[in-house]
Design a protein around this nucleic acid. Structure first.
Lengths: 168, 168
DNA sequence: AATGAAACGTTAAGATC
DNA sequence: GATCTTAACGTTTCATT
């Protein structure tokens, strides 16, 4: 029998140097060919393919996406939005938190949402065309939501850094 | 005069329905084949290819990337970090803002950074392995930076929504 | 109608898997 | 070997004259 104690073992345990190198490549360019990646990390294309597939199946690579420049499609306004929810949950109603989370998934303007420690419960990143759209989203959607108590907006003046790459 | 009311006119102006449909596909799956996209939007593969290339060359599609799950590579802690910079710029020194922005690019833990309206100047999203790494980043790197006055951390308890797709 | 520009589909060759 | 991408060519459509 054989516990392959080589370099890989990719999944189920932590990643080796090669896996991490492959991840760095694919985070930089999700369409890099296995040939080029192989040259860069010192493997054959088929070896890179095997590892990449394993990384995908293990859920380490969540998915591949195209990144679209918001301004180029007429979405010129980004804002971070701190949202505080109602605390008191009436017994016959669903938890305000659950209701809010479900709604967030359906709002396309909200591209990102995280539950935070600290005073404000949630931080949302919102991408819209302009101020009038933003205003409508706040007034007609967010503040009318039963779970929302109040919110505070910070507009993005400049995107200093916008990576999707985590430091592996 | 002429308002071209057809379907195309892809670039240089605003996008038509087909371009937007293609963008939605590629935002959802950056490796979708032109064949499948074509079926979905009602075009031949080569027509999809031509439009996709135009969208790339026009910078509307910035790039293609693989998304890696941070926890799966041992990066279990994400934080949002509000940073306030020094205001007084001594004449013989470089602008604190420029210095800070340049540094941010070199810190791999900082995956996102935006200049904001409001009290705090910058909002950073920071991804690290654990609290001790975070602590080291704050103490040894961020707060020692000459441009930084102070900062405030909010830790992410839960990623409710994490899209890279903007609503086209 | 006739012309020109722009975009589509088919086909076949070349990469990539 | 199979699939996917890419380039070439002929066809269609629409705007203009």
């Amino acid at each position: 029998m054989s516990t392959p104690l080589q370099s890989s073992d990719s999944v189920g345990n932590s990643l080796d140097k090669l896996d991490r190198a492959i991840l760095r490549c694919l985070q930089a360019n999700g369409r890099e060919t296995y040939d080029v990646i192989g040259e860069r990390v010192g493997l054959s294309p088929s070896a890179v393919l095997r590892r990449a597939k394993r990384l995908e199946e293990a859920g380490i690579i969540e998915r591949y996406v195209a990144l679209v420049k918001p301004e180029a499609v007429g979405l010129g306004l980004t804002a971070y939005l701190n949202v505080r929810l109602e605390k008191h949950t009436e017994t016959h109603k669903r938890n305000p938190m659950d209701v809010f989370r479900a709604s967030v998934q359906t709002w396309p303007e909200v591209v990102e949402c995280a539950a935070l420690t600290g005073e404000m419960d949630y931080l949302l990143r919102v991408v819209v065309a302009d101020m009038s759209h933003y205003s409508r989203f706040i007034m007609d959607t967010l503040l009318k939501h039963p779970s929302v108590q109040d919110c505070k907006t910070s507009f993005v003046l400049d995107r200093v850094k916008a990576t999707t790459s985590v430091p592996v």
